[in-house]
Computed example of a mutant assay.
Amino acid sequence: MTKEGAQQTAPGTIPDRVLMSIGFLSFFDRFATPPMLVVLAARTGLTLAEAVGLVAAYSLLYALGQPVWGFISDRFGRVAVLRTALVGLALAAVASTLFSAHARLLVARSAAGLMAGCLYPTLLTVIGDTRSGVAKARGLSELQVYSALGTTAATLAAGSIAAFTDWRVVFGLPALGCLALLVLLRRAHDGGTHRRGPVDFRAAFSGAALGVYGVAVLEGAVLMGVLTYFVPALQHADVPIALAGVLAAGYGVGVIAGARLMRRLVQRLSRTRLMGLGGTVLLAGYAASSVAQNPVTITATAVLVGASNAILHSSLQGWATEVAPAARATAVALFACALFLGSSVGTFLTAPLADAGQYGAIFLLGLGATAVLIAVVTAGHAAWERRRAR
């Protein structure tokens, strides 16, 4: 049996199917709200800007909770925080179904973001703990596929479920997933994934680590902040909500295709070149919808943004797991914090443009910010690799 196989089958380890299922759930919950923003606003009496604010608040609490989750994970273990977050997310999901007033729903979705924020970074940390080299890159790529499936399921189904049944159903579904995953985690223990020992938290605040977090803020605004608007932009172009969900699900198709391609590219290209390639794909995506906003261009943008996520973002994730190995969970959590902080800020800043129907301006801003991101990430990672090689 290979070392990797031993890690996956040893008693107490988290099985791959459970890791991937948690990734699916995390991204389903994260991306279920944007496709039903118009329906949610109409049926609750919220403005579209207020409905977008629910997504932004979710992302903000998702981000702000990361340092706390990372500290707890490094100190007490990975499985402990996964269980805690799954219980918390289940409660927040139920609470989200009980309120329609803006303030109370905002609190419930913020709590959901806080709890969901623990899940994906902890999965990255587990993979960083147990794999290295190409095996790590492939593990991250596989996690991207299941995360994309969660995103695709949310994009395809959430809008239609909300339109033809009730928006509360969409918010309530993750609670059932949490309960199932808690059952599957009942025999897992921290020793299976977490290498205990002294934790040097200062490593998570080195110059290199802070640079990675800065890049993550920009990527979050560019990649995830704009992602919120695919379905609303399609609806603004008079596409029915069910069809808009299908077209926007091109994002998930792009992630899956990009992840499969990434499994081959990782053996041929350096990580710096992969970042440059992923950034170029993202640039092409936003260029399409900057010129015109119609079903063809927005669908093309969704597919290309998804492919970029699989190539650029997974490369950044790999960098985050290596920049501070002595405090890996804390560093990965701070990376995720920065990523979703950037996403939240990007969404907050562009919400007035969405409310005015100016989606072309949003995609144009994404185009300009992507050009900056490509320059910063490729130069920064190349410099880090040179210093590490000395």
Rank of each mutant, 00 (worst) to 15 (best):
S344P: 06
M20A: 09
P325N: 13
A203F: 00
A203Q: 04
A56P: 04
F363G: 01
V94P: 05
T347P: 03
Q66I: 01
D74M: 07
R202M: 08
R271M: 12
L40N: 13
L60F: 11
E50T: 03
K136N: 03
G318R: 14
L312G: 05
S59T: 09
P121A: 11
V79Y: 01
A383F: 10
T47K: 15
G278Y: 03
A389R: 13
S308W: 12
V68W: 04
R271N: 04
G342D: 14
H381N: 06
K136W: 01
F201Y: 11
L227K: 02
G23W: 08
L349K: 14
V303C: 01
E4C: 05
W384P: 06
A320P: 02
S343H: 09
I298W: 01
A108G: 12
I72R: 07
L283H: 15
L247T: 15
L89N: 14
A383W: 05
A324M: 11
A216D: 00
A112T: 05
V169A: 08
T84D: 13
G346E: 12
V39D: 02
L98T: 04
H236R: 08
G192L: 08
T44N: 12
G191Y: 13
V126G: 02
A257E: 01
A56I: 09
P11V: 00
S110A: 08
C178L: 06
